Amino acid sequence: MSDNKAFEASINNATLEILKSLAGNMDKACLVVERTAKQDCPVNYGALRADIHHEVDFGLDAIVGTVGNSLEYAPFVHNGTGIYAKGRGRKTPWRFKVASGKYKGWHTTRGQKPKPYLENAKMKNKDQIARILAGD
């Protein structure tokens, strides 16, 4: 009976190289989306744009690329607030008071319109993402 250990090792090494290559393609695709999201992200002080990042996790069953923000207010900018929020926003205008400073006094708001810079970045690059993931 012949020894197949060398053959099995070569198959395992080839599988690992293929997974590494696919993870590299996912990383490239995420970078494309990240770059476009940073270009389209609304900027006040720049913290939201600076926080856009990506990560790629891979195992034997899946390779997952994620582009996003970790700032607490990022979902409110992306999805909107108040009457403009998708699904769960407040349905009526509301008032709030600023105690001091440039905006001191009472203000009425209906919320903030969504600025879906991450979703838009994904959709703008859909064809390029497909080419990258295919290895072209």
Rank of each mutant, 00 (worst) to 15 (best):
A121G: 02
E119G: 06
N120I: 02
M123R: 08
K97H: 15
M123K: 13
Y103G: 14
K104D: 04
K124L: 12
P93Y: 14
G101H: 10
R90E: 14
K122E: 01
Y117G: 01
K126V: 10
N120L: 13
S100R: 15
A121I: 00
M123C: 03
P114F: 04
N125K: 09
Y117F: 14
L118A: 03
P93V: 04
H107S: 09
V98I: 11
G89Q: 08
I132Q: 06
K91E: 07
I129E: 11
G105A: 03
A130N: 08
E119W: 04
K102C: 07
Q128T: 14
A134T: 05
K126H: 04
L133Y: 03
L118V: 06
K122F: 07
L133G: 07
G87N: 13
I129G: 11
Q112V: 01
R88I: 12
R131K: 11
T92Q: 15
T92F: 13
T109Y: 04
K86G: 11
V98Q: 13
R131E: 09
Q112H: 05
P93M: 10
W94V: 05
Y103F: 12
A99S: 13
G87A: 13
Y103L: 08
K124H: 11
R88A: 12
I129A: 09
K91F: 09
P114E: 03
V98D: 03
R131T: 04
G87K: 13
L118E: 04
L133M: 14
H107P: 02
N120M: 06
D127S: 10
P116I: 00
R131M: 08
S100Y: 10
K124D: 10
K113P: 00
K91G: 07
K126Q: 08
R110P: 04
A134W: 07
K113R: 11
I129L: 04
A121F: 01
M123I: 14
N120A: 05
I132A: 02
G111K: 03
K104A: 06
L118Y: 04
G101Q: 08
I129P: 10
P93D: 09
T109A: 12
P116N: 02
R88F: 15
D127I: 08
N120G: 01
K91C: 05
N125I: 02
Y103D: 14
G105C: 02
K124A: 08
K97R: 11
W94K: 15
